[in-house]
Structures are given as structure tokens and as C-alpha cells.
């Protein structure tokens, strides 16, 4: 069953600095971009690495290990060595708290 999970109050988010939530085996990174909040899987699809440790700019996140690059809004893998897109999750702001659905 899909559930909404709290991340943090809206005001706690800084641009380009994700917040990470662990739900069971899933690790989700939530970003504030110009046009809202976006949630992606935090694990690079190339080799195991935490994307939340990577460099984030202009709606893109770069894997800290091997520079695979993903679009945060769509989860799309933008260039090799990543070829598999990231999972994305719906987000909403409920009572001032950012949530994602999983």
C-alpha cells in the first residue's frame, strides 16, 4: 500500500541540498528545486553510491563516484555510465511538511 512519508518542514530545505529518508530497504533523496519538491531514489543505477553525496546543480544530480548524471525531476539517466533511470516518487506539502509517497 502506498503511504505518504514525512521528510522535513518546507522551510528546512536549502536549494541543491537533498534530505534523505530511509524506508525499509529504500533510500529516498528529496530536493527543493525552483519549481517545487522532487523525490528520487538515492542509489545510483550504475554502481552502488549515494547520490545525495553528489554534486547538484540546475535540476541535475551527479553521482559522487563516477559522474553519472540524472535529471532530478524525471529521474532520467542523462549520460553513460548510467543508463537506467532512477525511480521518482510523488511529493506534496502537507501542513508545511514535505512528504513523498511510497
Amino acid at each position: 500500500m502506498m503511504t505518504w512519508h514525512d521528510v522535513a518542514p518546507e522551510g528546512d530545505f536549502e536549494p541543491d541540498v537533498p534530505k534523505v529518508v530511509q524506508v525499509g530497504d529504500d533510500r529516498i533523496a528529496v530536493f527543493r528545486l525552483d519549481d517545487g519538491f522532487y523525490a528520487i531514489s538515492d542509489i545510483c543505477t550504475h554502481e552502488y553510491a549515494l547520490l545525495s553525496d553528489g554534486f547538484c546543480e540546475e535540476g541535475k544530480i551527479e553521482c559522487p563516484l563516477h559522474q553519472a548524471c540524472f535529471d532530478i525531476r524525471s529521474g532520467k539517466a542523462l549520460d553513460e555510465p548510467a543508463e537506467i533511470d532512477l525511480h521518482t516518487y510523488p511529493t506534496r506539502v502537507e501542513g508545511g511538511v514535505v512528504q513523498f509517497q511510497l
Binding site: 553525496d53 553528489g54 554534486f55 559522487p64
Partner: peptide, 8 residues
């Protein structure tokens, strides 16, 4: 352990 600084 600091790959995020590679691009800068």
C-alpha cells in the same frame, strides 16, 4: 570520499 567536489 568527496566526489561532490570534483565538478567544482
Amino acid at each position: 570520499d568527496n566526489g561532490r567536489e570534483a565538478t567544482p
